Computed example of a mutant assay.
Amino acid sequence: MNPGIVTLTTDFGLEGPYVGAMKGILLGLAPGVAMVDVCHSITPQNVLEGAFVLEGIVTAFPEGTVHLAVVDPGVGTPRRLLAVKAAGQWFVLPDNGLITGVARANGVEAVWEITNHRLARRVISPTFHGRDVLAPAAAHLLKGGPPSELGAETSKYIMLRNFEPTPTEHGCIGEVIFRDAFGNLITNIKDDQLADRDAGGWIVEVGGRRIEGVTRTYGESVPGSLIALLGSSGWVEVAVVNGDAGRLLSAGPGTTVWLRPKF
């Protein structure tokens, strides 16, 4: 029986040996695994962006899938490594907030700290725990190994506070958390923030520009228009129809976004 599905999400890029090295460990320990590259172009060290990407793939994968995620600016420090079970799937990652989106949307069933180095590679580099510790842990779970062999169960894990916007009297202040390949700016403002009024009754401000109303789809506006709309996962995003909002606004992850009612 094949061991199942493993996904990989990292900030490694594809130019060097890093992604290939992790895949080699996974294939050696769990032959026949179905491997899915989710994203290797997370902005380096941007944990918030990685958390957004992970949250966006959960409902697309079956129970039992193992998600290996490495955006790890604290590699080699005493920060913890975790195996988290959520939505019937596994998330193997550093404890730095990467699990925030998944936990927020789905809850967490259980968490184990990865401390059993007998399951890791014989030599562990202090700068590549993704290859030497996390990939072997993911392979262990793929083969049906009990999570208790990874280490002790725990109830503690870090959550990022800025994954959610800050409420104001009538709206909220958020930020861009992801810029996609089209230049669309996905914010941390979810559809539930719009529940108080019709979508056309909101104003979105970003990069010094004011957008009136949240539209349903790109095609409702003429090419070149700067619009706000709800993306496929329920996040408010800012886009230029047939264009690049990030370039137009000189904006990206971390840019402040205001959501205000139209009085």
Rank of each mutant, 00 (worst) to 15 (best):
V6P: 00
T10W: 10
V19N: 01
G20S: 12
M22L: 15
P31W: 13
V36Y: 01
H40N: 12
H40D: 05
S41W: 07
I42H: 05
Q45R: 13
V47H: 04
E49W: 00
G50K: 07
E55T: 02
G56V: 02
A60N: 13
V66W: 00
V66Y: 00
V70T: 03
R79D: 04
R79F: 06
L82Q: 02
G88I: 12
L93C: 07
L93K: 07
P94N: 08
N106Q: 15
G107E: 11
I114W: 01
T115W: 08
H117V: 08
R118S: 13
I124C: 03
T127L: 12
G130A: 12
A135I: 04
A137Y: 06
L141N: 00
G145V: 04
G145N: 06
P147N: 10
E149R: 13
T154F: 02
T154L: 02
S155A: 13
I158W: 08
M159R: 13
L160T: 06
F163A: 09
P165M: 04
P167R: 10
T168I: 09
F182P: 00
I186M: 11
D192N: 12
D198T: 11
W202P: 00
I203M: 12
I203R: 12
I203F: 11
E205Q: 14
V206A: 11
G207N: 11
G207S: 04
G208C: 08
G213I: 08
E220L: 15
S221I: 00
V222I: 12
S225D: 15
L226E: 10
I227P: 02
L230Q: 03
E237N: 06
V238N: 01
A239C: 13
V241L: 09
V241M: 03
N242I: 04
G243L: 11
G243V: 08
G254R: 12
R260K: 15
P261S: 09
P261V: 11
